[in-house]
Design a protein around this nucleic acid. Structure first.
Lengths: 120, 120
DNA sequence: TTGACATATGAATAAGTATTCAACTATAAT
DNA sequence: ATTATAGTTGAATACTTATTCATATGTCAA
């Protein structure tokens, strides 16, 4: 048991295992990115938006009606998805139409969806 | 264009599409569950814990050392993962050893990890 | 050009959450 | 028995974030 004064508030119990994993550890930045990806899907409103866009391209008003929420609220959430490259938009007259952009996140979302659909 | 006074603050622009998707829509509860799953992974500390446990079963002290955080902080996060069935624990003397429990969440996590590892 | 509507956005508010701190339980060692 | 250590947990704090409100921009129709 090696005292570890600087790193944290407790002892290392299994030094070999700890060192082995510390070598494999990614830099902080990568874990932040990873968490961000999951956090993007980790909100009910955004889940509903993604679910809806999986079925059809949609403008903000229609999304607001489908989700039964205000345009403003939807628009804020779309901005988050947009700024993280999850959705793409095209303008047509007064309307703005959104579609899914990021294939990886879409796949992750679909996997999560399949999972809960198979729950009891 | 049909005025929708009760549902939200705006008009339905494409009624057919909206109605079609409203039929396919899941109940609120299911989207909450879905979001919860992703939210569980959507935090850098929990990502690090999951990453570490992917490689080896580990006790709280060792986890605290690997992540360079306090035992308390780790323990709180482990409680969240535990309460949501993501990790399992076994006691051995004074130590508590954690392993991954939920195969679905582990798979989702791995998919996310693969994704960011293939980023430029 | 005026009015109506679709969308975006900044600020404010409210709710949620991660970490710290202090106190607690349980186990092991002396 | 007493002490030290591993882990948990509740409360407090600091931070993040979703929604609302008010306002602004841009497009279309009259």
């Amino acid at each position: 048991m090696i005292k570890n004064e600087y790193a944290c508030d407790c002892n290392i119990i299994h030094q070999e295992i700890v060192e082995e994993i510390q070598k494999k550890m990614y830099p902080e930045e990568r874990f932040k990115k990873l968490a961000t990806i999951f956090k993007l899907i980790g909100d009910p409103t955004r889940c509903k938006i993604l679910f809806t866009l999986t079925h059809h391209e949609m403008c903000v008003c229609d999304l607001a009606n489908v989700l039964n929420m205000t345009k403003s609220s939807i628009s804020h959430q779309l901005a988050i998805l947009r700024n993280n490259g999850v959705v793409r938009y095209r303008k047509s007259g007064k309307e703005v139409y959104y579609t899914l952009e990021d294939i990886h996140i879409t796949k992750l979302f679909q996997m999560g969806l399949d999972h809960i659909n198979h729950l009891p």
